[in-house]
Simulated assay, not measured.
Amino acid sequence: MSQLAPIKITVDKQAIRRIESDLLHIKNGAPRAMSLAINHTLGVTRTEASKEIRKQVKLKAGYVRDKLKIKRATVNRLNGAIQTPTRGTLLTRYPHTRYKNSDMGVQVKPTGGKKRMPGAFFIRFANGVQVIAVRTEHGPGLGRSEGLKVLYGPSTSQVFTDVKDDLQAPSGNRLMQRLGYEADRLLKRQ
C-alpha cells in the first residue's frame, strides 16, 4: 500500500479528556467511543475523497472506492487510515473509443472530450487484461511484445494526494461530533 503522507486531523484535547472522564466507569469506554468515531469518520471521508477524486479524473465510483482502502481503528489501536496503492491506472479504466482510422481516444478529465492518441492500439495480456499501448521501436528482429509501451493515466493515489488537504478540516469536525455521539450512546446504555 501507499507510503503517502496521511490526512492529519486535529482534535480538541480538552473534549477528549472530558469524554475520558465521563466514560471512566465503563470498561474500555473511551477507547470504544474513539474507535467507533474514527471508523465512522473514515467511512464518510472515503466517500468524500471519492467524490473529490472523480471531480478531477473520469473514473467510475466503484473503481475509486475499491482503491481507497480503510485501515480500521480498534480499541487497542486508536488510529485509522485511508490507503491507496501507488500503482498507475491503466488508460482502459477511463472512457475510451477506437476511431475508424484505428486511432484511440481517451477521456481522463471529467470535462472536455476524448483526446486522440494516434498510433495507440489495444493489446491483451495473458491474464486477460486489455490495455492501450503504443509502439516505441520499429524494425526487424523485434518480438511480439518488444518495443511496446503500456499507457497509464493518473493513479488514485496521485489525485488523493491533491484532495486530502481539503478533507482535513471537515473530517476533524466530523470526528469530534461523532465522538460526542458515541460517548452519549455508551452512557445511555449504562
Score class of each variant (00 low, 15 high):
A49I: 08
A37E: 06
N28C: 09
T45E: 13
L68G: 06
A61N: 08
L59M: 06
T45G: 11
N28V: 10
Q56R: 15
K67M: 06
G62E: 06
N28S: 12
T45D: 12
Y63I: 04
L36P: 00
Y63N: 09
I70G: 05
E52I: 03
L36Q: 12
T45L: 11
K55L: 03
M34T: 03
K51H: 10
E52Q: 09
M34K: 07
D66I: 01
N39K: 15
T45W: 03
Q56E: 10
A33D: 00
G43T: 14
E48D: 14
T47E: 10
K51T: 12
A30Q: 05
A61I: 02
T47N: 11
K58V: 00
K55M: 10
V44N: 12
Y63G: 11
L59W: 00
K55T: 05
R65A: 10
P31R: 09
R46G: 10
S50W: 06
G62W: 04
L42K: 15
K69Y: 01
A61D: 11
V44Y: 10
M34H: 00
K67H: 05
S35I: 01
K58P: 00
K60D: 07
E48L: 14
K69N: 02
V57E: 01
L68M: 07
G29E: 05
I53G: 08
K67C: 03
S50P: 03
I53H: 07
K69P: 01
S35M: 06
I38F: 09
V64S: 10
Q56A: 11
R54L: 10
A61F: 01
T41D: 13
S50K: 12
D66K: 14
S35L: 04
A49L: 12
T47Y: 02
M34L: 08
H40R: 15
G62R: 11
R65E: 04
A49F: 04
K51S: 14
N28K: 14
G29Y: 06
D66T: 12
I38C: 11
I53Q: 05
T45K: 09
A30K: 07
T41A: 14
A61S: 12
G62P: 01
K60E: 08
K60R: 13
R65Q: 04
D66L: 10
A49W: 06
L36S: 13
A49M: 13
E48Q: 14
M34N: 03
V57T: 05
E48K: 14
N39D: 13
V57H: 02
E52S: 13
V64F: 06
I38G: 07
V64G: 07
M34R: 11
K55D: 05
R54C: 07
P31H: 08
N28P: 03
M34G: 02
E52V: 04
N28G: 11
I70S: 06
T47H: 08
K51P: 01
A37R: 04
S50Y: 02
V64L: 08
I38W: 12
M34F: 02
P31N: 09
N39W: 12
A61M: 02
D66G: 13
G43M: 14
T45C: 10
Y63E: 07
A61V: 01
R65L: 05
Q56S: 08
I70P: 00
R54N: 04
E52L: 13
P31S: 07
L42N: 15
G62K: 05
K69D: 03
A37F: 02
I38R: 11
S35W: 00
T41S: 15
M34Q: 02
R54A: 02
I70Q: 08
